[in-house]
Amino acid sequence: MFVQVIQGQITDAEQAHTAFDRWMEELAPEATGWLGSTAGVTADGRFIVLARFDSADAARRNSESPAQDKWWHEFSTLLTGGAVFHESEDVTVDQAGDPNAAGFVQVIQGRASNPKRARALMAEHPEEWAAFRPDIIGSLLAIHDDGAFTTALYFTSEAEAREGERKEPPASLKATMDELNSLDAEQPVFFDLDQPWLFSPR
C-alpha cells in the first residue's frame, strides 16, 4: 500500500467537503488503484487527508490526470499558505471493525527515534487491546523519512474515545504505552476529526 498525506490550513471546511464529494462523483471512478481516503478539518481549521493507493505508480498516474490536476487547482484555492505533502510505502493497517463506520478519527503526526520498534510495539497484544479499547475499530500507520510518521486511529465515536482515554490500562499494555511514548523524538501533533470524511471505492 502507498499513502499520500496532504495537509494545510483551510478557509472553508464546508466548501472543502463539497469539493471532496464532487471528487467522489466525478473522479473516483477513473482513479485506478485508489483504495480510499480519510479526510477532515479540525476545529481550528487544519485540513488533512490520507489517500490510500495500491502502489506509488497508481498514485502518480492519478496525480498526472488532467481532471485531477484541474480539481486540485480549484481545491488548493481553499488553502492558506499552500499544502504540505508526505508519502509512504511503509504502511501498516489494522482493522478490528469497519473504519468506514468511524464516528471520530484522530490523526497523530510525530517522529520516532526507532520507527521499527514503534511499529513492533503497536502490533503487540492485539487481543488485549481489542478487549481494553473496543472503541478503536481500526488504525493506519505510515512511516515517512527520518522516522517521521502519520497514524490514523478510527473510533466508534468521540465520546467513547474520550472515555477510553480515561481508563487505566492493564500492566502489560501500560508497559507498551510507556515504551511507545519514550520513542517520541518530538512532541506529537494531533488532528481531531469529529466529523471525518471517509471515502472508499463504490
Rank of each mutant, 00 (worst) to 15 (best):
T150C: 01
R166K: 13
A123D: 13
K167L: 14
R119N: 08
R166L: 13
N114P: 04
P134I: 12
M122R: 10
P126T: 09
M122D: 01
E165F: 15
A161P: 04
Y154C: 00
K116L: 14
L183Y: 14
D135K: 02
N181C: 10
K174D: 13
P115G: 07
L141E: 01
E127W: 07
D135S: 12
A148L: 06
E128P: 00
T176H: 00
L140D: 00
A161V: 05
A171G: 00
E128Q: 15
T156D: 06
P170R: 11
S182M: 08
E163C: 04
A148T: 10
K174Q: 13
K167E: 15
L121N: 06
E124P: 04
E163L: 08
P115W: 07
E158A: 11
E160P: 05
A148G: 09
S182Q: 12
A120G: 03
T151N: 06
N181Q: 14
L180P: 03
E179T: 05
E168C: 02
P170M: 06
P134V: 11
D146F: 12
L180A: 07
L141W: 02
S139D: 09
E124H: 08
A171Y: 04
I136P: 00
F132E: 09
N114K: 13
R162W: 03
I143M: 05
Y154D: 01
L140G: 02
P169H: 08
A148R: 15
T150P: 00
A175F: 05
E124I: 06
F149M: 08
F155E: 00
K116P: 00
R166D: 09
A148F: 08
W129I: 14
H144W: 09
F132W: 10
A159G: 02
E124M: 15
D135M: 11
S113W: 03
A120T: 09
L121E: 06
E128A: 14
E158N: 11
I143K: 00
L140F: 06
P169S: 11
R162V: 11
P134K: 09
E158R: 15
E160V: 08
G138T: 01
H144P: 12
E124T: 14
G164Q: 10
A142P: 03
I137D: 01
M177A: 13
Y154R: 01
A148Y: 08
F155V: 01
L140W: 02
E128V: 12
R119G: 04
T151Y: 03
